[in-house]
Write a protein that binds this DNA or RNA. Structure first.
Lengths: 127, 127
DNA sequence: AGTAGTCAACGAAATTTTTCGTAATTGGTT
DNA sequence: AACCAATTACGAAAAATTTCGTTGACTACT
């Protein structure tokens, strides 16, 4: 099992593409990322190789053109990142993190309702 | 003004001490951090110097033994980190971040009530 | 079979972050 | 005034992250 290590920024940028597109070739990832920022094809390739070694992505070798996909869902990775942030900046208090996120960020009416529903669930009461 | 750059992990470890203790000398920070992990006195000093250059901390020179303090409140830094995480891993959706944090983390009854209150506020309704 | 085009492998340079050894400075004590 | 202990300054090594040039392999097409 992977000890769920926190992806670096560059790794996260690649994961974002894979989450959005699903399994992709190096070129496909490269194309998407090129729109944001100029970078070399081999840079993306190398990153994917490293991420493969770390277990962040897996590759399908069957075709000549390899296809990469994430080994963790976006949700799982988000959890890892949240845990890390919680630990390093919020003294482990998820509540203060949530409140901090709510206090300064705008959320739509529907979203707030969604969160409220979740709260009810968390509190274990039916409505 | 600082463009509010994200502190590195090592920087964050030092900020944690300063948040907890308030303005501190190198030695004081060093003492606290030594309990967690072995590291050199000059390592802490150097970090504080770098952080000072970056504007993350400020120093009081009046005494021979300098005193360092944060330039941003913990809340401000938390905001910076949340914004960064939001952007890099949650597609900018603070709602999904909040839900993600709520879904898997335990919060006490009181804390949930606190959050609920905040929700009411955010929604602009009285209860 | 030769050639052009695409791709993965590899190694290394460049950059950023983290760590610390050594030297210089200061303030108090003898 | 010389000494000592504690501190800061400085530079650079070590480690981690990010970038990419070059090479060799493979494919499709002539």
């Amino acid at each position: 099992m992977s000890p769920a290590t926190r992806p670096t920024d560059a790794e996260l940028a690649i994961l974002r593409v894979l989450w959005e597109r699903g399994p992709s070739t190096v070129r496909q990832v490269f194309e998407v990322m090129s729109e944001e920022k100029e970078l070399g094809y081999t840079t993306v390739l190398k990153m994917l190789q490293i991420m493969n070694e770390k277990g962040l992505v897996q590759r399908d070798i069957t075709d000549r053109v390899h296809t990469f996909s994430t080994t963790q869902t976006q949700t799982q990775t988000q959890q890892t990142l949240l845990d890390d942030l919680l630990d390093k900046a919020f003294g482990g208090s998820s509540t203060s993190l949530v409140m901090q996120a709510l206090a300064t960020r705008r959320a739509s009416h529907e979203e707030l309702a969604e969160i409220r529903k979740l709260l009810d669930l968390a509190e274990g009461r039916k409505r």
